[in-house]
Design a protein around this nucleic acid. Structure first.
Length: 935
RNA sequence: GGGGGAUUAGCUCAGUUGGGAGAGCGCUUGCAUGGCAUGCAAGAGGUCAUCGGUUCAAGUCCGUUAUCCUCCA
């Protein structure tokens, strides 16, 4: 490729081009790319470029608008319009149960759109990292599909509306100071009857009518099709902006302006009620727009993605080119890996549930692309540094978790290789079966079963089947898949609609939060909810009720700390509060009405269960000590990944690649308890987030923090951002006992520990258990127990062996006698007798020895075991050949003792419930054998 | 959150309609063999994960618990 390099760190981009003069080419390129800085068709020595990807003639160029610059330009443009620049929300929202991943820029502003809570600003702009898996099949195939992408957005909460949104979008796209795109290449759409938007585009912006199209509710309404099909809630028409590339390729939707102006209530007609406050929600795909500005045909060719595709190619040993045979696979690897790296960075490791499962799926699909190319060892993790390098400008924090993320990915890759390995055996059997049946189709049901139980992704099975000239019955597969989906139960995503709690909050505002200062106070009831509906009064005894107070000493579950419990009381009124949750700024007391009645407006005494709160405080402070100890013993990578703090017990998840060794665990426990004994003071300070970080405070990646944070410090060794309730001094924890260490997801370990009273209880419990065992084994010296148990087991084994030998010997003694007394029918003998004090094994031993020594022989033995009859029939091989069947015999005989049985022709067993009838059963058997031998 | 599956010898795994617990590798011993993954023979090694149920009889059928794998949302 060309020898000269760009003047700064800009990356050359490449396009095929016709063989034309350099001058003409420059004009053409300048026309295409408003930000073109430099372009070339030849090397400095005048020779033509040669490249297998782009052919003989291509142009090499670079332009000012790198993706990072576009992102920055967008944000500063809207800042200049008065929007507040907000950081990207986390990719995996922890406090929004309606989504697994942030799907769009507006997600972090849900409450502002719904009018819940205070408005710190009325317009905002963001570049939001998003993850969607709905179109995963298209990723790598089309030019524009991603799972992970960034969305540029500007938002208005009752501030500016259509006019500004449209004008600003146009200004940013076409003004030479900003993107400077050719207006002739832009066309827009509006919703069918949105004349307001149409007129702004046509009359104010000056777009000619052939550049404006009206589209229906499925194309130009949010949510799509909402007027006819719902869901209920806020909605509105959209206006989309399309770019028509000079290459004549397909148009690209680069910007969608959503005008949320309605609240949908029920089905048409007249179901769209105007909202009192109108909002703006716009989204511009960063990668798409970058592709337009950089003059490339696909998002995967832009400066922050193409190098990743190329790096992916290198790790699998293939050269990446867009149209090359591995192009699609490498793009998928690049896309999925980017998504996984970001999610894992935020602490969502591959797992079996929720978001964690999606990440596992993405990672496995990415790995599979490499596997099908021929990779048989982990390779994805090698690309993590490349992702971080390309995304370092907007997300510098990625570098801090690089090792953990790469390690987690590597572990999952190895894990998946193991899964593939295990499934291969079953797959081979399927192939065998299909081929031996003469067919070349694998049954869909069994292929799905392979997928469902062994994680064999369909693509893999298909590829491997194709290698052997087999296909899969996809229709049957589809049926099995549907069936599984139905059985495993489909949950529905919540839609964006305000619930009764939001209504209450709009009226009364946030609950005043007293939990840091006190555990009891008087308060006024400002809202009651029963069965999800707001009510004015509750008087049914035992009714479950959610109570909202104007102020509350209760701590609502958050930051891993469980909600308080306690009571709300008044004259002749008692509500048991069992759980307390936070909903936005509200504290929701979930409880049961024990007595009296509760009305909105009532004054109540709110009393937190002090003892339980004290236990929670012990556990929470101990959690910080544990976090500190983990860093000391395991290293700084042992970052918190989640926690659950309860009454004197805690669960702490952290990243660590391997099981924590026993001695490490002891060491951790020692450090925690040393810090407890040290009695370090616990202090709480409020400060700006950046100051706290400057002090080295530990914060969770992927957690959203407000600008003012609460810093919890213990002595000089621990500083964490935390909203929980803590002790005044670490000494008050008393004791911390680690109970368990386990694996929860790839690269994530969990420690369970107890504090205070429960720690003591746990120790006592195991002591008592040991003492019980010692008593049972008559070993008062507990340290003798392991030896005692070994000794007893050895003894038991020896006795069993001796007994078996003894039985064998005693059987041998009697067999001769039994044979001597046996009934003779021709050449054969019949032995039908009852034995005393023998078990089933001994009966078999008799039968074996009788057959070994008795030549042609038919046997039926009976005995009584635990009040029930046991019968065993045996027939020597020569008699079996004559058609005498032990199974038939024993079945007949069993009827006489009220039972049934069966077995093989040479040996069969049966039982019955009537021991006193055993002689009759023996007679039935003898008769059966006689008849059979004579017949 | 829900679904499917697994758990049998030290290891890897078979085990049909319920009727006598198996193979390969490894281990021990003996014999053969001057050498590499040597050959032959014998042997040891099992709470069939757990607890309960059905049955005359459960590794096998049903349920519980634990651990692991896996899928769906």
């Amino acid at each position: 490729m060309g020898s000269s390099t760009p003047v700064d760190d800009r990356t050359w981009l490449f396009l095929p081009c016709p063989e034309i003069s350099r001058c003409l080419l420059l004009v053409q390129m300048a026309f295409r790319l408003p930000h073109l800085l430099r372009c070339d068709t030849t090397n400095t020595d005048g020779s033509m470029f040669r490249d297998q990807t782009y052919g003989r003639h291509f142009v090499r160029y670079y332009c000012t608008m790198k993706t990072n610059e576009l992102r920055e330009a967008y944000l500063s443009f809207f800042e200049s319009k008065g929007c507040v620049r907000r950081p990207s929300d986390v990719l995996v929202p922890k406090d929004d149960p309606t989504v697994l991943f942030t799907p769009a820029g507006m997600n972090q502003f849900k409450n502002q759109f719904l009018g819940i809570g205070p408005l710190e600003f009325t317009k905002a702009t963001t570049s939001q990292k998003c993850l969607r898996t709905g179109d995963i099949g298209n990723v790598g195939v089309t030019a524009y599909h991603h799972t992970f992408f960034e969305m540029l957005g500007n938002f208005s909460f009752g501030d500016y509306f259509k006019k500004e949104a449209i004008h600003w979008a146009w200004e940013f796209l076409t003004d030479k100071k900003w993107l400077g795109l050719d207006p002739q290449r832009l066309k827009v759409t509006v919703y069918l009857d949105d004349d307001e938007a149409y007129d702004i585009w046509h009359k104010e912006v000056g777009l000619s009518t052939d550049h404006i199209r009206r589209d229906d509710e499925h194309e130009n309404f949010w949510p799509a099709g909402a007027p006819s099909n719902g869901p209920d809630g806020v909605c509105g028409p959209c206006s989309e902006i399309y770019y028509y590339p000079p290459s004549g390729g397909k148009e690209v939707e680069i910007w969608n302006l959503v005008f949320t102006q309605f609240n949908r209530v029920g089905d048409p007609p007249d179901n769209l009620k105007p909202l009192p406050k109108q909002n703006i929600d716009t989204g511009m795909g960063l990668e798409r727009c970058a592709a337009v500005l950089q003059g490339v045909e696909s998002n995967y060719e832009i400066d922050i993605l193409r190098p990743l595709c190329e790096a992916a190619g290198e790790t699998v040993g293939k050269k990446y080119s867009f149209a090359g045979p591995e192009g699609r696979a490498l793009r998928r690897i690049a896309d999925h890996l980017r998504a996984c790296a970001f999610a894992i960075h935020e602490g969502v490791a591959p797992g079996s549930h929720g978001a964690e499962y999606i990440i596992r799926l993405l990672l496995r699909r990415a790995f599979l692309e490499g596997y099908l190319i021929g990779m048989r060892e982990p390779f994805l993790h090698l690309l993590v540094p490349k992702v971080n390098e390309l995304m370092a400008v907007p997300y510098p924090e990625l570098s801090k978790t690089e090792q953990t993320v790469a390690g987690t990915i590597k572990e999952e890759e190895q894990h998946f290789l193991g899964t593939i390995d295990r499934g291969l055996g079953k797959f081979e059997k399927l192939v065998e079966k299909a081929k031996s049946g003469g067919g070349n189709v694998l049954p869909g049901k069994e292929v799905f079963d392979l997928h469902q139980t062994d994680g064999f992704i369909l693509d893999l099975t298909q590829a491997m089947a194709a290698d052997r000239g087999l296909t899969i019955d996809m229709q049957e597969y589809g049926i099995a898949e549907e069936d599984h989906k139905r059985k495993s139960g489909q949950g529905s995503w919540g839609v964006m609609a305000a619930g009764p709690l939001d209504e209450i909050q709009k009226v009364v505002g946030d609950t005043e939060f007293l939990a840091y200062e006190t555990t009891s106070s008087t308060a006024k009831v400002v809202g009651l909810i029963v069965d999800g509906q707001p009510v004015e009064v509750v008087k049914t005894p035992d009714a479950r009720v959610d109570v909202i107070l104007d102020r509350s000493p209760f701590y609502g579950e958050s930051g891993g700390q469980v909600g308080d419990s306690g009571t709300l009381s008044g004259p002749s009124l008692l509500v048991n509060v069992e759980d307390v949750q936070k909903h936005g700024g509200l504290i929701v007391h979930r409880g049961v009405l024990v007595s009296g009645e509760l009305k909105v407006g009532d004054s109540v005494d709110a009393q937190v269960d002090d003892e339980r709160r004290a236990g929670i405080r012990r556990a929470h402070t101990a959690t910080h000590l544990l976090h500190h100890a983990l860093h000391q013993v395991l290293g700084d990578h042992a970052m918190q990944r989640g926690s659950k703090v309860e009454d004197d017990q805690l669960r702490f998840d952290f990243s660590h690649g391997a099981a924590v060794k026993a001695d490490e665990l002891l060491n951790i426990e020692d450090i925690v308890n040393a810090k407890i004994v040290a009695g370090a003071p616990v202090s709480i300070d409020y400060m700006d987030l950046k100051d706290a970080k400057a002090q080295g405070a530990m914060a969770l990646f992927g957690e959203k923090y407000p600008d003012r944070v609460r810093l919890v410090s213990m002595g000089e060794f621990s500083k964490e951002l935390c909203g929980g309730t803590h002790l005044d001094n670490t000494g008050q924890v008393g004791l911390c006992k680690i109970a368990q260490e386990e694996n929860v997801a790839a690269g994530v370990r969990r420690i369970t520990a107890y504090t205070g009273k429960k720690a003591l209880d746990k120790v006592r419990e195991s002591e008592r258990l040991l003492e019980d065992v010692g008593r049972a084994l008559k070993t008062p010296q507990l340290h003798d127990l392991p030896r005692k148990i070994d000794q007893l087991q050895e003894e038991l084994k020896t006795l069993r062996q001796e007994r078996a030998q003894f039985t064998k010997a005693s059987v041998a003694n009697r067999v001769g006698e039994l044979l001597a007394k046996a009934e003779q029918v021709g050449e054969a003998r019949i032995v039908c007798i009852e034995l005393q004090d023998v078990d089933r094994d001994t009966l078999r031993e008799y039968a074996d020895q009788l057959r070994n020594q008795g030549g042609s022989i038919a046997v039926l033995l009976g005995t009584t075991i635990e009040g029930k009859v046991a019968l065993l029939a045996a027939v020597s091989k020569d008699l079996v050949k004559r058609g005498i069947k032990a199974g038939d015999c024993v079945r007949e005989a069993a009827k006489a003792v009220g039972g049934g049985g069966g077995g093989r022709p040479d040996l069969a067993e049966a039982g019955g419930k009537l021991p006193e009838k055993t002689p009759q059963a023996l007679e039935v058997a003898a008769t059966y054998y006689r008849n059979a031998l004579n017949g």
